[in-house]
Write a protein that binds this DNA or RNA. Structure first.
Lengths: 190, 190
DNA sequence: TCCAACATGTAACAAGTTACATGATTTG
DNA sequence: CAAATCATGTAACTTGTTACATGTTGGA
């Protein structure tokens, strides 16, 4: 059987608090969405499956007068499965797919003007993303320079955000370095 | 229609030189496999599709006496499609999935002993990967400190490898920093 | 002569995307 | 009262994985 990452990311989210399918969809647009995501169409199907398998249970919460919000919470089985999965040690790392880097491998025959556009476009996207992550970070952790006082609930959030920020900073710095290099290579041909 | 990244990564590889399905499978275990990969079962199916669509053409090369190796090369259509795809500017970056980071978000209730194991295991995997990338890099580019003299064929390879190395270095440094932080947080509780 | 690597494929299934479909609630 | 957001779902399709299946070639 496959790895069912979506299953475990839903169980993980539900371990923090009860949620509806809609809530889970929203969560994937926030911090955790930096490392895993799914569309609502996939989420509703997976929730039904997890319910069938007794990893979660369901109850109804009224939102307004007629709108029934389906809330989900972990069962004992679900809690155990999650715990077990988190503690499992990986024996290899999967390919971290990156379409921009993939394209670079095929740069041959591309005019330098176009290469500059590609890099500048990517820089813009990455800087925007970094800016948003930093905004999230300072909203949550402010100026607080001592993350050692975070409780275990906040720690996960802190680690994930610093990871995402560090990843983007590194991406941007590599983009800048590579663009410089390409420009220098062009100059050396004149 | 979907984005067909596998299609374009195959076209990209074939733009460098004619290859068989087997050759393409092997390529995905090398540099380019850091950013995209696929199993042979998927590759053979995709090649048949690309042949149908006239993006590639096929010829036979005898390997030994009876073994017919099916070689593929780009058609004019395939070359144009590739060129167009490489030059397209993205308007957003997709989620860069990372299961280890995902797990960290769900750390609550995990004993510190186990957290150390998770980090140390990941450090080991990442360091091994970095070592292999550095080996590849020095094999290809040696001590040569002046990448500005690379021709456009080598440039793509250089960029992809430095990207992968930089990504791993950043990952490792974030792992070390976070592990330190967690240890300090534990000490502060005594 | 055996084994690893070369070489190509299919079938069944799981995972993920896009589009279609509907209705309630809140806010300006 | 209109529009944005909340809320849930299904259908058709694409993409990706695992397992099954077979045969060749080169080297120790």
């Amino acid at each position: 059987m496959a790895r069912r990452i979506l299953k475990f990311s839903i169980l993980g989210l539900l371990s923090k608090q009860d949620m509806s399918g809609y809530d889970i969809t929203i969560e994937f647009t926030k911090a955790i969405g930096q490392f895993w995501s799914a569309k609502h169409s996939q989420i509703y199907v997976e929730l039904k499956k997890l319910l069938d398998e007794d990893s979660i249970s369901q109850y109804i919460e009224m939102a307004g007068v007629k709108l029934e919000k389906k809330m989900y919470c972990l069962t004992t089985k679900g809690k155990e499965e999650l715990q077990k999965w988190v503690l499992e040690l990986d024996d290899s790392v999967e390919t971290e797919k990156d379409i921009f880097a993939l394209k670079l491998y095929f740069l041959k025959d591309i005019p330098k003007q176009e290469i500059h556009s590609l890099f500048n476009n990517q820089l813009q996207l990455r800087e925007k993303k970094l800016f948003n992550l930093q905004k999230q970070f300072s909203f949550l952790f402010g100026n607080q320079q001592n993350p050692i006082y975070l409780d275990s609930e906040e720690l996960g959030h802190y680690l994930v955000l610093t990871k995402a920020i560090s990843r983007e900073e590194n991406y941007i710095s590599w983009l800048n370095g590579s663009l410089d290099l390409i420009k220098k290579a062009e100059d050396s041909l004149t």
